[in-house]
Design a protein around this nucleic acid. Structure first.
Ligand SMILES: [Mn+2]
Ligand SMILES: [Mn+2]
Ligand SMILES: [Zn+2]
Ligand SMILES: [Zn+2]
Lengths: 141, 141
DNA sequence: AGGAAACTGATAATGATTATCAATAATAGT
DNA sequence: ACTATTATTGATAATCATTATCAGTTTCCT
């Protein structure tokens, strides 16, 4: 949280009550993937007058300084979650039947990344989604 | 193209002039990632009265029977391309500086997929994007 | 050919995100 | 603490991609 405030200051971003509230929401919900609307409602519990535009602006700013990931899980809206400290984004497994999202902590993309870097690219991050029926949904068949 | 028509019939989809035109556009542009709007304009060269709604409907139908991939490259709109026959979607490398998209033919996700399947999932497909500065953009620094 | 069912284009509606702008609040320097 | 500068805010309107509606048309099976 301290390093987050430093990141904000480094980018000339001021620390306002609204931003603190949104950060709190994201930290209270680690592991979840929240939409902007969900963040708005949760933030209003701490700060009733916060507006939608501020939520969007803040989420985007926090994503731009790598405090949050901003991911689209194929439903036409972005979802946000706290970044993993110091590593690339973890992978997601999405069940096309029930919609549940599971996380995968292992990276295991080294051979692919080596191949890409050997062609002269400089990798910043990656985004890997698996579409897979989850064990529960498979049992229902 | 024959197997595509069979896939359409199997799903009770009729083969109309509009759909043929859209399929032609996608085949004329293999390797490209077209937005619905781009498909509309190219399809109108073959069939001037085709409407936007038909393009959206057709692209979605073709994606649902695995003739097309529908992918969002973080610009707020979907893009479509012909599927690779009989294999999972290839990977994409996106340059955050110039926006160019490169393809990667190697799959190389076996160890990850094994791990997921050993937990009881049934993998349908995956979607892997690398964000990486391309060789050209790196030279400009 | 005949008829059920699928399809079409024009248009309106939706829904997420972004832009605008006047009022307010956070910081840096005194 | 006071002030000037500059960033930020909330309300609102605007944008833009995608979907829904619906009456008229086309496909395709028998
Ligand atoms: Mn996650
Ligand atoms: Mn591709
Ligand atoms: Zn499931
Ligand atoms: Zn580039």
């Amino acid at each position: 949280m301290n390093s987050i405030k430093e990141k904000l200051k480094d980018s000339n971003y001021r620390i306002t009550g609204q931003r603190a509230a949104i950060l709190e929401v994201m930290m209270d919900n680690q592991g979840k993937h929240l939409s902007a609307e969900e963040v708005l409602y949760k933030a209003r519990e701490k700060m009733p007058n916060i507006g939608m535009a501020t939520v969007y602006r803040t989420l985007d700013k926090l994503a731009s300084i790598e405090v949050l990931y901003k991911t689209m899980f194929d439903e036409g809206r972005y979802r946000y979650e706290l970044c993993d400290e110091g590593m690339h984004q973890h992978h997601h497994i999405i069940c096309p039947s029930c919609g549940n999202i599971t996380e995968m902590e292992d990276d295991l993309l080294n051979s692919l990344e080596q191949k890409i870097e050997s062609k002269g690219y400089e990798i910043i991050d990656h985004d890997l989604k698996f579409y897979a029926y989850c064990p529960e949904c498979r049992n229902k068949e």
